[in-house]
Design a protein around this nucleic acid. Structure first.
Ligand code: MN
Ligand code: MN
Ligand code: MN
Ligand code: MN
Lengths: 141, 141
DNA sequence: CTGTCGATGTAGCATGGGCTACATCTAGAT
DNA sequence: ATCTAGATGTAGCCCATGCTACATCGACAG
């Protein structure tokens, strides 16, 4: 492997991380919205403000960007809903989140710390790594 | 645990992820600089441009921000060096990177994919999770 | 009814981190 | 000696994501 090839791979790696970061907010938002809808039937700005710990302004603008990506839309009553695409992303995100959380716990990480670490990690895992985590969980009950 | 406490923890979790993201660039840069210095004795803008796959302008500005954090400084010959703090961060980052990479490989992830996933994950792991990974590696040789 | 307050929205600002285009400077080739 | 190309730096733009301050609007208490 030449010097040039090594550099290429390194650049591609960092490129992928930047892409993951630009997807991260949408993934967390649709997951949170799905969760709110299940638990309380509505997902309002103020609920999301509480979940993410940012100002209501930041929430509103994030929602607008995510709406432009056709993942969510606002009902006349003022609650937010998921489109079909959004629903699919929410389901995938939340299953992935759950898997990562369970994996960390199975590895021996405390519940609280596993929850914290999963929140950041989850956006950087390939399907191959997720499969390996699933396999580990299966092999350890 | 009350509704409010759950919200608080969720907000704190996301807060931590945002903090990790704001540290991420510095961690990767000092690691890359240390690596370049070891391998070739110099760390120039163009080397980092190749590693991260961004324009030289982005590299220059990143370096300036990291310099303001007293992690690096520029020599008269135009190469970049690490301060003591930077050296410490580079050492910690690179050990952590290596650990995460080895852990993923031990878990059964292919070398190439492990390298990609480690690049993003590494910045989101608590010392508790890193310890669990070390333990796993020890128990599996 | 009216006043107040909570939720939402807008205006305007900052910072981080991307980019292209253009300027400069130096070293090496001719 | 001069010309050129590579490395570096600057100017100025973009977008995402945070913020405060201010405006609106609707529901409910009095
Ligand atoms: Mn997350
Ligand atoms: Mn990340
Ligand atoms: Mn790294
Ligand atoms: Mn990294």
């Amino acid at each position: 492997m030449s010097e040039g090839e090594v550099k290429m791979k390194s650049a591609a790696r960092h490129d992928r991380v930047r892409q993951q970061h630009s997807d991260e907010l949408a993934e967390d938002y649709v997951e949170a919205i799905a969760d709110l809808l299940t638990k309380s039937g509505q997902a309002r700005v103020i609920d999301l403000q509480g979940i993410f710990g940012v100002s209501h302004v930041s929430v509103i603008r994030a929602l607008k960007r995510i709406e432009e990506r056709k993942l969510i839309h606002k009902t006349v009553e003022g609650s937010w809903r998921l489109t079909e695409t959004g629903e699919a992303m929410a389901k995938a995100s939340s299953e992935r989140h759950e898997l990562v959380l369970n994996f960390l716990q199975a590895l021996g990480v405390s519940d609280l710390q596993a929850q914290v670490d999963a929140e950041g990690m989850e956006h950087h895992l390939s399907s191959e790594t997720l499969s390996s985590m699933r396999r580990y969980l299966d092999q350890n009950q």
